[in-house]
Amino acid sequence: MPKALRMRPVIGHDNRPWWDRIDEGELPIQRCCSCGTLRHPPRPMCWKCQSLESEYINASGKGIVYSYVVVHKPAVPGYEYPLAVGLIELEEGTRIVSNIVGINPEDIEIGMPVEVSIDAVDDEMNLPLFRPASR
């Protein structure tokens, strides 16, 4: 039996540019072309100025753990448990949900600095994952 894979995101017009940039090794943040407001997750309209024009910038990849959980169950095929999932606040100000890797889940703390790497989690999917910052 083939190894179970992580769940895939469903891709459509509104999120494709973001995932394409992940495949290119960058962590993108959507930016309003009109007022410059950053937003994540990406969506068609700016909540501040209602502009429908947007572009992407590359995040520095540095941030802090704003909150996190350690999942034990339900255990879904394709993942290893206990599984640390963090809500990361990027230094640009937006937040993103991702896994916190390279650290024992028991040692994770709110506020700790982390940095991104874009990793191939299997043959078909790249994800931005966060690990304790080297600095």
Binding site: P9, N15, P41, V69, P74, V85, L87, V97, L127
Partner: peptide
């Protein structure tokens, strides 16, 4: 469906994981 794609790939699945955050 687009929405859950920001969470499910990382294993944030189901109400308990969200409530825990």
């Amino acid at each position: 469906q687009i929405h859950w794609g920001w969470y499910n790939p990382y294993g944030l699945v189901g109400p308990a994981s969200v409530a825990a955050m």
